[in-house]
């Protein structure tokens, strides 16, 4: 458990890794919007190629990237099947068995939907999970949401909670291991029996885990107070992120990419989504 990593961050030092965290969040959002604006075959093809180029730019091994896709394979298959059979086309159906009728439009729609989901997952992986450290992510979220402070929303507190949660995931997972071992030594059985029995066996793990988590919280709060923590007011930062030319260029390119996708919607080649 010592080797548990926070998130899926995969350091390669590529251009995308070096982008400002806030910019990466914005890029991910633009990418998501662009994905939903695609309608024609031409723009989908362009989206696919563009996303692939981005994946290559991160210099993360393809196998690692595909791992995040593997998790959604079933969702992809189900979406594909549902879309394929529930789209009613204009022409003659390809075939019709019992209540299942397949039109050519169905296949196109299904393929496009699957491609969309794939591109959503890849987009967030490229810009956020694989290339942004958790701490950079929470800092960026705080920074991007800071206008909301004017509305008296506790943005700083929220970001602090996120980063403390991230900090304690490995600590608490270590502790879970320890408690489970201790309960096993006392004869607890976590692996056999019905589902309900196994769930019940976890109670003696959860109770001490919660007790200790609260104790930790108490001690941490005292330690933070002793280190002069008093909320976000008057707080400075050691590393102040500032945008450089490549950050602005990246947003520009991404916007251009999105615009290109919208323009390509006009190219009426083979099929256009309805």
């Amino acid at each position: 458990m010592k080797n548990i990593s926070l998130g899926q961050y995969y350091p390669t030092g590529s251009v995308i890794h070096r982008l400002d965290g806030r910019v990466k969040i914005i890029l991910a959002v633009i990418h998501i919007i662009a994905t939903f604006l695609c309608e024609s075959l031409a723009s989908f093809a362009c989206l696919f190629v563009g996303t692939l180029v981005l994946v290559l730019m991160t210099r993360i091994p393809l196998g690692v990237v595909l791992r995040s896709v593997r998790a959604i394979v079933y969702i992809l298959i189900i979406t594909f099947i549902l879309n394929a059979f529930f789209t009613v086309g204009e022409g003659e159906p390809l075939f019709s068995v019992w209540i299942f009728t397949l039109y050519i439009e169905g296949i196109w729609n299904a393929a496009f939907m699957a491609l969309r989901i794939l591109s959503l997952i890849l987009g967030t992986s490229i810009f956020i999970s694989y290339t942004t450290t958790p701490i950079q992510l929470t800092d960026s979220i705080e920074s991007l949401l800071s206008p909301l402070k004017k509305l008296k929303l506790p943005v700083h507190d929220f970001a602090m909670m996120m980063s403390i949660a991230l900090r304690f995931i490995p600590t608490i997972s270590d502790e879970t291991d320890r408690i489970m071992t201790a309960q096993k030594a006392r004869g607890a059985d976590f692996t056999t029996g019905s589902l309900i029995k196994r769930a019940k066996a976890l109670i003696p793990v959860l109770v001490p885990l919660f007790v200790s988590a609260f104790r930790r919280a108490d001690e941490l709060a005292t330690a933070m107070e002793c280190r002069c923590y008093h909320g976000g007011e008057g707080r400075t930062k050691m590393t102040v992120p500032h945008l450089c030319a490549r950050d602005i260029a990246a947003v520009g390119l991404m916007l251009a990419f999105g615009a290109a996708l919208v323009l390509l919607n006009r190219v009426d080649f083979l099929y256009k989504m309805v």
Partner: peptide
């Protein structure tokens, strides 16, 4: 407890 006084992930 050294674990309960470190706040950040780095």
């Amino acid at each position: 407890n050294p674990d309960n006084q470190l706040v950040a992930t780095i």
